[in-house]
Design a protein around this nucleic acid. Structure first.
Lengths: 135, 135
DNA sequence: GCTATATTTCGCCATATGACGAAATATGCC
DNA sequence: GGCATATTTCGTCATATGGCGAAATATAGC
C-alpha cells in the first residue's frame, strides 16, 4: 500500500495528483499494452531520461505502476489497484474516453515502432541525442 | 463542456488536478447529499471565504460542480458528467473508498449541524470570525 | 577493479499552486 | 443612491512542481 494509505483523503489527493500531469497520463496509457522499458518510454515521450524517471517514480509512489529489474534494464507495468479500480488494465473509465485524443493515438502508433526496435540500438540513439544536445 | 474539452488529454489532466487537493475533495464529498450554499461550505471547511471561492471556481471550471444563484446566495451542487462517470452522485468508485476517512465522516457530522443552522446566523458568525481574526 | 551502459537522484530555474487579506462585484433593503 | 451582506477577484507570500543537465548509483562484461 502507498505511504498515504493511512489517510484515505490524502491518499486520494496524491493519487489524483499523480494523474494530473499530461506526461504521466501518457506514460500510463502507454503501459496499457503491457510492460515497457524505461528507454522505450523515454523514446516515446521524447523527454530527458531524468524527467521520465522522475514521473515513473511518482507513479510508483502513488501505486499506479510497478517496476521490475532485469540486469541494467528496468521494466514498468501498470499496477492493478483493487481499492482503486478506476486505474488498471481492467478499468475502462479512464482510458476509453482518452482514446479520442489524437496525441494518445499518435503515441500508440509510435510505440508500435519503438517496440520493434532493438533495445540496444534504442539506448544508443537516446544517448547520442543526449550528449549532442540535439533537442 | 469544459474549456479543455478540445484536447482530451489536457482535459483529463485538469480534471484530475481539480481532484488532487484535499480541500476540493472535501468540498465534492460534502456536496454528495445535495446542493449547499457557499457559507455552509465555508463553515464546514473552516477556511477563508476567498479560499473556498477559489476552490469552487476551479471545480466549476473542471465541470465537477454547478452553481445556482438565489439573490445574494450562491448554491453549489455536484455536476453529473456523462463523459466522466467516476465523478457524480451516481459514481460509487470515488466516494465509497473515501468513506473510510475519519475526516470525511467528521465532515458529514459537522455538515448535519451546519445544515440545521439558520443561514443568516451562519453568515453572521462567519463574518464575525473574519473581522476578529480569531482563526 | 576498470570501463561501459542504464537508470536514478540532486540541484537549479521558471512557473504553478493554496493559503490569506483587501478590494471589487453582485444582490437586497430602505 | 446609500448601506449592508454574500461572494468573487486580485495581489502577495511561501511552497510545490516539471523541465533540464550533471552527478551518482546499479548492473554487466572483461
Amino acid at each position: 500500500m502507498t505511504k498515504y494509505a493511512s489517510d484515505p483523503l490524502r491518499a486520494h489527493a496524491r493519487l489524483f495528483a499523480a494523474l494530473s500531469d499530461e506526461t504521466r497520463l501518457r506514460l500510463l496509457l502507454a503501459l496499457r499494452g503491457g510492460e515497457l522499458c524505461v528507454c522505450q518510454l523515454t523514446a516515446l515521450l521524447d523527454l530527458a531520461p531524468s524527467t521520465i524517471s522522475k514521473h515513473l517514480s511518482l507513479l510508483r509512489d502513488a501505486g499506479l505502476v510497478e517496476a521490475r529489474k532485469q540486469g541494467r534494464w528496468v521494466y514498468y507495468r501498470m499496477a492493478v489497484r483493487a481499492d482503486f479500480p478506476m486505474v488498471g488494465q481492467r478499468a475502462p473509465g479512464l482510458f476509453q474516453s482518452l482514446d479520442t485524443s489524437s496525441r494518445i493515438r499518435n503515441d500508440a502508433r509510435n510505440l508500435k515502432k519503438i517496440c520493434r526496435e532493438d533495445m540496444d540500438d534504442l539506448c544508443r540513439r537516446l544517448a547520442t541525442r543526449t550528449t549532442k544536445g540535439t533537442r
